[in-house]
Design a protein around this nucleic acid. Structure first.
Length: 137
DNA sequence: GCCAACGTTGGC
DNA sequence: GCCAACGTTGGC
């Protein structure tokens, strides 16, 4: 299983919105690097839900429940999207500040390329973030 | 194909 | 609101 980090502005679509819907298409991604990452996702992969702009923190864990297909909001046919479902809300959100302060997370892609909305997360980084969030698994 | 101008993202 | 990073556009 691979791990990912996906960003959304919570005033547009928050983790609680995803919980309310049950599952959702992660659409509207219009960046090629982010698209490549979504195409590499497999069923059952886990993704950290990150709130950008407001909160600026990791708030929950999601599971990929449908692999890349045509983005239903795209009329050009060029862009794809996956579907996600909530797994759990983090006991304690992990802020960007905390991530930057943790040496074990210094190599994270989301820090290296701060504007990338969908980025890969290494196993050890995922484990560390869950630990910082007060989660056991 | 290069590069300047411009637009967008995202943190602060 | 500002600014850095970076993607896109368009002239040449």
């Amino acid at each position: 299983m691979r791990y990912w980090l996906m960003k959304s502005e919570p005033d547009v679509f928050s983790y609680d919105d995803l919980v309310a819907k049950g599952r959702a298409e992660w659409d509207g991604v219009r960046n090629h690097a982010a698209q490549l990452n979504m195409k590499a996702m497999a069923l059952g992969d886990r993704a950290i839900f990150y709130h950008s702009n407001i909160g600026v923190e990791c708030v929950g864990i999601m599971e990929i429940v449908r692999t890349a297909e045509q983005d239903s909001t795209d009329e050009t046919g060029k862009w794809i999207a996956v579907e996600v479902a909530p797994v759990k809300k983090l006991a304690n959100p992990v802020t960007l500040k905390a991530i930057k302060a943790e040496p074990a997370l210094a190599a994270m892609e989301m820090l290296r390329q701060s504007r990338l909305s969908v980025s890969p997360v290494r196993d050890a980084e995922y484990t560390k973030i869950l630990e910082m969030a007060g989660e056991k698994d």
